[in-house]
Design a binder for these strands. Structure first.
Length: 804
DNA sequence: GCTAGGTTAATTTTT
DNA sequence: TTAACCTAGC
């Protein structure tokens, strides 16, 4: 954009401001009172507590429009941050409708990471990088960590690179640099965690690269160490808006706080009740603490819900009310009452899937709850990915079209990443990670040994691998297939690099690289449907290149845009995780698998105790509030978990559903029904039993199913403890104990100590040897020493205390 | 260097 | 149960 047009737009903005003083500006129309307050309270700190479905994006975009229309800020003075590209796109799109062309003048609207990159390119040298740094995704990151770990001579079994990667991520989420990792954390990785972290950062610097965490951490470092730079941005970015504030981690929080220093014009939008990403570093505390962080902040609650019926809101509200320390909101709506939620128990997961399939068909026909629904209007939200299989199986057999949201994204697919590595090599032959990725893809006879030779040559000469390879060849270190393969590869790569420099059309070059490298041929040779798909994807990739001026621009862009929104016109039922569903809405929502241990997830409770349970509860809240008109919750009494049949208890969240808003369904002939507290009484002889009487007799012959009708609140009861102890004894006979002691509930997770006696469902009794987070080394009496995860253990201490 | 068979471990996911 | 990863043998 030219200076002239910018100026013109600025003028237009002010003209609009003048106009809006009289007539209500269009963006204000239809806003409710709190929304309007959120739009008009421009100066100072504002916390917009926006419940599910209360029109926060609308308020947020109107606020930006208002900032501009009133001349309070110019488009380029507004920093508007989101978490996902999707959210950024959505905001830009909706602003476009309000502002027209002016949206293009908002360079600071984007994801945290995109904005981080932008800042970092400008000030890279302040953290020892060149502005042309490359961005590694998690795959590259892992490979690099593997290399770094190699130098530390750690047992890969005990200290897996993946664990190091997630440790580094966590540390970066908390804005800890290698030197600032607290001493208390330093025991990680055999006491060498911080050392490894430092070495990894060193490697990154040498490679002139950043991982995703760095995109936030480096800017924070820069601002902290360079007040003059920060002061510049205080002048430039006068108004800050943050979406999904409850999802911010410490690094993001610091980033925002640094930028808001001084003018203090920061508006954070979020909902503490929808904070579901604690496990990846999000700190609900950030939003809970907002008023203390920004004294005098205005807190505006958006509570009128435009999405769901009163029954749905009441149910969601009752569930979330069980959480402590909320900021508190009460959603209300003017919608017609609608239908109660429906709750149903099933014998097992398969039956649940069958029922949901039938129910969907009934909804489509309109024989359930009024007018017919289209498949697009129906979603099934599960806690964990593995729950999806049962539904996929069922839907395939009955021919119900469905789409799965989530799964590997386009740019994470192997073929796409391979192709990208070729592109990267063409742009920068010194990209060692790319070199390693494709030097032997397709097979060129360059195996581990050859690669080691190349690495040694490169290290000795202090040059990148590509040059090291040339040196190794020159010095005759390679022979046979490896030598010829490598020679061909180097020649190709240098030819492509020349082509990039000569400015050969990048789309054409990309196609040529894939052909000349033999990469396309490799997949063609496979002749499987899967390979077909991969070739399709490659074509799509090359097509995507057309939108960019050159390969560099494309690579830069792709590093940050990792999503895969494949538009698919066909009407399909949506299948996805609860996490993936945040922010979405559907007329009808199925919430299957509400069983303790699955949802709330045992692991979450074991690892994070009450905090984990509360996050699970928020997930339940998110799930229910996705529904506009119909919400169908179900659970199964038996489920196959890791190939073993396990009996399940209804989720404790079911007990928290308000009876007045829930209709309990009872399929004829199968169940005696029962609400919440009571698991369905079964025709198969199982019955609801009191706290102290647990029927643990095996039914159905040798199918391993264990009858365990029980109340969810039975956990703490003597009966439950007895059952547990009993299960241990009969474990060999097919009755399987729950993966971890439910004594974990209500407090911190079960904590195991060295020396403690424990029980494992496969290995039997053993003694804890060593503890590292949730991983333990246990010497089993019969099975010998094994490394196991805490959740598969139950404490066997005091087992004799349990009376029978 | 590749492949087949054994071992291992098992949420949630964005950038 | 199963999928990913590793190791041993060709």
């Amino acid at each position: 954009m030219t200076e002239a047009t910018k100026k013109a737009q600025g003028l237009a903005g002010r003209a609009m401001a003048a106009a809006s003083a009289g007539a209500r500006a269009s963006y204000m129309q239809g806003l409710n009172e709190p929304q309007r307050a959120a739009v008009e309270t421009l100066d100072g700190a504002v916390l917009m507590l926006a419940g599910a479905g209360t029109g926060k994006t609308r308020a947020l975009t109107a606020r930006i429009a208002h900032l501009i229309a009133t001349g309070t800020a110019r488009p380029n003075e507004i920093l508007a941050v989101t978490f996902t590209n999707k959210a950024a796109r959505e905001m830009k799109h909706r602003l476009g409708a309000l502002l027209g062309e002016q949206v293009e003048g908002m360079p600071w609207l984007g994801t945290f990471h995109a904005i981080g990159v932008k800042l970092l390119r400008r000030h890279a040298e302040l953290v020892g990088l060149k502005p042309s740094f490359t961005i590694l995704d998690s795959d590259d990151q892992l490979r690099l960590i593997k290399q770094v770990l190699g130098a530390f001579n750690l047992d890969e079994k005990r200290w897996p690179p993946r664990a190091m990667a997630s440790l580094i991520d966590q540390w970066k989420n908390r804005a800890w640099r290698p030197e600032s990792v607290p001493a208390g954390e330093a025991h990680a990785f055999d006491n060498r965690g911080t050392e490894i972290y430092a070495a990894y950062q060193e490697r990154l610097k040498t490679l002139n690269a950043c991982d995703f965490g760095d995109l936030l951490l480096h800017p924070v470092t820069i601002f902290q160490a360079n007040p003059d730079v920060l002061a510049q941005y205080h002048r430039w970015l006068r108004y800050i808006l943050v979406d999904e504030y409850q999802d911010t981690n410490v690094a993001q929080y610091l980033f925002l706080r640094l930028l808001a220093q001084g003018h203090g014009n920061i508006c954070c939008v979020g909902d503490d009740d929808q904070s579901i990403y604690g496990w990846r570093g999000a700190e609900v505390g950030n939003i809970l603490r907002f008023e203390r962080d920004f004294p005098g902040a205005a807190v505006i609650r958006l509570e009128q819900n435009y999405r769901s019926t009163p029954h749905i809101l009441a149910a969601a509200g009752a569930v979330i009310a069980a959480n402590q320390g909320r900021l508190g909101k009460t959603l209300w709506t003017e919608m017609p009452e609608g239908e109660k939620l429906r709750l149903i128990g099933h014998w097992d997961g398969e039956e649940e899937a069958r029922w949901i399939g039938d129910e969907i068909e009934a909804l489509e026909r309109g024989t359930r709850g009024g007018k017919p629904l289209s498949r697009d209007e129906i979603a099934i939200l599960v806690r964990a990915g593995h729950q999806m299989r049962a539904f996929e199986d069922r839907f395939l057999t009955i021919g119900l079209p469905y789409r799965v949201i989530g799964g590997p994204r386009f740019y994470e697919r192997q073929e796409i990443r391979d192709a990208m590595a070729y592109f990267r090599l063409a742009v920068s032959p010194a990209d060692d990670l790319a070199f390693e990725r494709v030097v032997n893809v397709p097979r060129r006879g360059i195996g581990d040994k050859a690669l080691q030779t190349v690495q040694r040559a490169a290290r000795d000469a202090g040059v990148p691998l590509m040059q090291g390879a040339a040196l190794a060849l020159r010095d005759g270190l390679m022979k046979g297939k490896a030598a010829s393969g490598l020679r061909g590869f180097i020649e190709d790569a240098s030819r492509w690099h020349d082509a990039v420099r000569a400015g050969v059309n990048h789309v054409e070059l990309a196609g040529r690289m894939l052909d000349e490298s033999g990469y396309t041929a490799m997949w063609q040779a496979e002749r499987t449907p899967e390979a077909e798909g991969r070739l399709e994807n490659l074509k799509e990739l090359v097509k995507a290149l057309e939108e960019f001026d050159n390969l560099q621009g494309f690579l830069e862009h792709v590093a940050l845009i990792m999503d895969n929104e494949s538009e698919d016109a066909a009407e399909k039922v949506t299948l996805m995780t609860l996490h993936a569903a945040k922010g979405l809405e559907f007329p009808a929502v199925f919430l299957p698998g509400w069983e303790d241990g699955l949802f709330p997830s045992q692991r979450s409770m074991d690892e994070s105790g009450l905090k984990g349970l509360e996050e699970e509860r928020r997930l339940a809240y998110v799930g229910i509030t996705r529904a506009e008109r119909l919400c169908l919750i179900s659970f199964a009494a038996n489920r196959r978990v890791f190939g073993q049949w396990q009996s399940q208890l209804p989720s404790r969240f079911i007990d928290e559903l308000p009876e007045d808003h829930v209709e309990v369904l009872t399929p004829p002939g199968l169940y005696g029904g029962g609400f919440g507290a009571a698991a369905p009484a079964r025709g198969t002889g199982r019955q609801h039993v009191g706290d102290d009487v647990i029927d643990a007799e095996t039914v159905g012959g040798d199918d391993g199913l264990e009858s365990r009708a029980a109340r969810a609140d039975v956990y703490a009861s003597p009966g439950w403890r007895r059952l547990q102890a009993h299960s241990r004894q009969v474990a060999g006979a097919g009755a399987v104990p729950r993966p971890a002691a439910p004594t974990a509930q209500g407090g911190n997770g079960v904590i195991f100590h060295p020396g403690e006696r424990v029980f494992h469902q496969r290995f039997g009794m053993g003694t804890v040897h060593m503890v590292d987070g949730d991983k333990l080394a246990v010497a089993f009496d019969r099975a010998g020493e094994k490394h196991v995860i805490a959740r598969f253990l139950t404490s066997a201490e005091g087992i004799d205390d349990v009376p029978f």
